[in-house]
Amino acid sequence: MFLAWILLLLGCVQSERACYNHEYQFEEKCCRKCEAGSFVERDCTSTTETVCTPCADGGYTDALNGLRHCLRCPICDREHHLTELEPCTPVKPTRCVCDEGFHCNGFSENGECTSCKQNVMCGVGEGATTSGSNPQVIHCEPCPDGSFSNIPSQRPCRPWTRCEELGMETVKAGSPVSDSECGESSHLTIVLVLGAAVICSLMLLLTYCCRKKHKGSLAILKDEREEPKPPLLPIYCREREHR
């Protein structure tokens, strides 16, 4: 009789026990959940564990679960300007993103994007910014100092060109609607002009020296040619000298 009371008490404790996170409630039992990528084919009994089956193509479960079937993989609807970024697998759903120039304005129960809306087009002198709550939603704001936008777009303002980093001078400062205009640096121009002048002077000096040297050589050669030679002696005089 005492043993029967013990068994009855244990049964009441088991039936009233809350299931753990890795378990699900089935009738009066706590059954082990199935892993991500599978679902419950048969619930547990007092003598057997939960039987799980892998998800087939087109289905998924992305967490521990007690589901009787896998979730259906979402389809990226091109008519709603959705593009597939990552395909569906047994452990994760399809990841869809809005086309460029659109933002998500419709969501499923699990937070996936289901439809998109075209973004606002920012005018000249304005740039696109995003909000923290939905980074895909575009707002237009005036270009801050140091940046510009010269055409309507859905992009942020572009920074002015820094002429000094290019070794040039700023001819015209930028504005919210135009970029900076760069020109050759006056210092660089002076250096180039002086350098060219020095090179030309050296070339002229070298040419002058070469010509002067050449003229000296010709004068020496001319003197040698004009120097009178001693008269030739008759043959009999030369024979006498040899004797």
Rank of each mutant, 00 (worst) to 15 (best):
I138M: 12
Y236T: 09
M1T: 15
L194E: 05
P54Q: 04
E86C: 01
V191T: 13
C210D: 14
L82V: 03
S186K: 11
F102N: 03
E27S: 10
T89R: 05
E84H: 09
T130N: 06
C122M: 02
C182A: 02
G195F: 10
C30K: 06
G195N: 10
S15N: 07
F148H: 01
E109L: 11
M121Q: 13
K29I: 09
S133G: 08
N134V: 05
G127V: 00
D179A: 05
C104Q: 02
S178I: 04
A173T: 14
C52E: 10
V51Y: 03
L10V: 09
D77T: 02
K33T: 04
D145E: 11
R155W: 06
S178V: 04
E86D: 05
E41V: 04
L9M: 04
S38H: 00
P54M: 07
C237L: 15
R240I: 07
C113V: 14
H187S: 13
D179N: 15
R162G: 05
G127T: 01
R238H: 13
R42F: 13
G195T: 14
T94A: 05
K172Y: 04
C31S: 01
I75E: 14
S38A: 06
C122F: 01
Y20I: 04
L9C: 08
T45D: 03
R225C: 06
C210K: 12
C31V: 01
G195R: 09
G216M: 10
K222G: 05
T130G: 01
C55F: 00
K33H: 04
C44D: 01
F102G: 00
L3V: 10
C55V: 00
L8M: 08
T130K: 07
N134H: 10
A128D: 00
T47M: 14
E164Y: 08
N105F: 07
A128F: 01
D179S: 08
H139K: 14
L233T: 08
L8I: 07
S46T: 13
C237N: 10
L206I: 11
V171H: 07
V97L: 11
C96L: 00
E184T: 09
H103A: 03
G58S: 05
D62C: 06
S201L: 15
C31T: 00
N65Y: 05
V191G: 06
R155H: 13
E109M: 12
P234L: 15
S131K: 12
K33W: 03
Q118S: 13
M1W: 12
T94C: 03
R68L: 09
G183L: 05
V177L: 02
L218N: 06
C140Y: 03
K92P: 02
G66A: 07
C52L: 06
D145P: 07
L188N: 10
T207W: 11
C30N: 06
L7W: 09
W160H: 15
C209V: 15
